[in-house]
Design a protein around this nucleic acid. Structure first.
Lengths: 357, 357
DNA sequence: GGGCAGAATGATATCGATAACACTAGGGAG
DNA sequence: CTCCCTAGTGTTATCGATATCATTCTGCCC
């Protein structure tokens, strides 16, 4: 056992006896590594017989393809990067799922990052992603740091900005105007007779979609001649349910005769409604409340919540589809496009004029 | 323009003039590529002066490190893989965030996949992940296909299973007993005088945590001598708010005198409560309802929802920490460990015996 | 029967970084 | 004054797959 002729295998850590390469599979089968490589792709010309033998060997040996080596020589990483502000309890998780689903069976893998609504963090993440040489990248929103824009330009890969219509798009866009969507909600409710509008949102600095919704609100209230809008800023985005509750209290303290409160998201609207009920107010009897995003909670909640339905999942799918187009047809007809996604007002109990809760 | 001596640059796609390598940065600065490589790492010995010049050049040229090349030669991919059942509206998004946060500043990047509660999909994802040669992998739950287990064994990387206590752990575990947690909730409510218990969950086949909660419920109700538990299965996991509402209706049709209904998650509990209110029943006056998971919604909802608080975020952080430990101290003291995470009953209005809504 | 197309496979260079070792210059210890 | 050590840097081989070109073999056509 302790013969002097033992090889010095000190480098081998416990249990890493598995550095199995394509070459060893090849040797085992009696073909060249190149043939094994071909067998892993469906288009390559390998005889059915050989492919079968190779795949049996792969199974027997437990070989797993090493894409990091492959992507180096093929110069295709097989990655798509996507950055979303947050993944918790938000519309963006649906978008992420849409991207994931659209990427299925394309051989592309999603690299997901959370920017936490910060352009600086986004910049860092963009750099981290680009180090993996993704073949395309999907961003949320249109405001990026200068350095981020420069890196993206240099990268020479298709970029899709989502969830907004940036003033200066980098490349492709899949989104909608948050301001106009909110404006539509204001007009719809105004046409039902509501006059004294309040608004609840986060502090605007970081969440550009939130601030677009707010501006859309303020502008439209003004245009309709309904006096200055009553807007409350509460907490850093994403504003929580609890903050929605706190905000509605502040708002009603300051402007007690408010008739309807629009919220930057359904979550804050839900928090506001629950807080009102807790304080014995009836929704929509004493106060009407609406949200944004059409989360599941809004159709289930009692009272159900009026909101704007946005095709979150579709944004993800379409963004990914745009990217795949750009990757396939690269070379021609890759004109940067803006894909507008739909939204619609969903009227529910929480703003029902005849209603009581 | 159409001279015969034009180089045939058909291979060059529009805008990929950016194949900048470390060697070119090196030439630009007048050092070797190796020195540039060193400059990118903090520990390497490069003079401050040289590093500064290199970084300026990197900035000027817009060079971005290529990790896929680096990981091939260093044999460290810099990836950690994590698989969760779903990311939408679920506790797992918090776990994913915990992992992400724990990985910050470690130079490791998260590869996230969604198994959709399917062991087959998990198997496929495990293979896809292993092709990227992750340095460790975090799974949800303890049931995997045989092939998945074999691949994980062969991979020779640390594995952390989370959210449960598997009977046969692969390696490390960070989780808790879902059955015991549910049992605790039953006992707590029984001690408050509740006798006729109902249960709402999804069809059990795929969601092992869900079925553990169900068994915990049934077993404990039995043990307490409270007759056979009244359990409803409704829909494939993850059960939605809406399904929670439908399920509570079925349950009450079948067993109208049920006093308290425990739900597999807070989301279904919320749906159940809202449906009850919609039908004019008072919660907890006419029926008490409890959930599992302590989602934000449960503390905000009116009535607030009794539930089991689970440290979702902490599970993610600890799983990642366990992995980092295993990667650092690789070679010694890597005994597989089971890390138990805490849970506690949170009593709220929805099961308040004196209460009305 | 010669030649040629096409399928199947192999040999070699290469992708872009890093590991491992070699080397140089300068400074402190003896 | 020599030796040795260390910090800083360069050289070369290498990671494991794939692009590319070369090669072999078969069969078919004129």
């Amino acid at each position: 056992m302790t013969n002097g002729d033992e090889p010095k295998d000190k480098r081998l850590k416990a249990g890493d006896a598995q550095k199995l390469t394509m070459a060893e599979v090849a040797k085992y089968v009696g073909v060249s590594a190149m043939t094994v490589s071909r067998a892993f792709r469906q288009d390559a010309s390998v005889s059915e017989e050989t492919r079968k033998r190779i795949m049996e060997a792969v199974d027997a040996l437990g070989y797993v393809l090493d894409l990091s080596a492959g992507s180096l020589s093929s110069r295709r990483s097989g990655f798509i990067a996507a950055l979303v502000p947050s993944i918790n309890n938000s519309n963006f998780s649906d978008t992420a799922r849409g991207i994931t689903d659209a990427l299925e069976n394309t051989g592309l893998q999603l690299l997901l990052g959370y920017t936490d609504y910060s352009a600086e963090k986004e910049e860092k993440l963009i750099e981290a992603m680009l180090r993996r040489r993704p073949e395309g990248i999907i961003l949320t929103g249109g405001s990026h740091t200068d350095r981020a824009r420069r890196m993206l330009d240099k990268a020479g890969i298709p970029v899709v900005e989502t969830w907004e219509i940036p003033e200066e798009p980098i490349n492709h866009v899949v989104g909608f105007s948050n301001g106009e969507a909110m404006s539509l909600l204001v007009r719809t409710l105004a046409s039902q007779g509501y006059r004294r509008f309040g608004y609840i949102g986060g502090t605007t600095a970081r969440d550009t979609r939130g601030s677009q919704r707010r501006s859309g609100f303020l502008k439209t209230v003004e245009e309709l001649g309904l006096g200055p809008g009553r807007a409350i800023s509460f907490g850093v985005p994403p504003i929580t349910m609890e903050q929605g509750g706190q905000a509605v209290v502040s708002l009603l303290e300051r402007w007690p005769d408010t008739e309807v409160v629009l919220c930057v998201s359904d979550l804050s609207a839900f928090g506001a409604i629950m807080e009102c009920k807790r304080r014995g107010m009836s929704v929509p009897g004493d106060i009407a409340i609406a949200g944004f995003g059409d989360y599941e909670i809004s159709s289930i909640c009692h009272p159900s919540i009026t909101t704007i339905n946005v095709d979150c999942y579709g944004i993800g799918r379409q963004a990914a589809a745009r990217l795949l187009d750009a990757l396939q047809g690269s070379g021609e007809a890759t004109g940067d496009e803006i894909t507008l996604t739909g939204y619609r007002v969903v009227l529910r109990e929480s703003t029902d004029r005849g209603g009581a809760a």
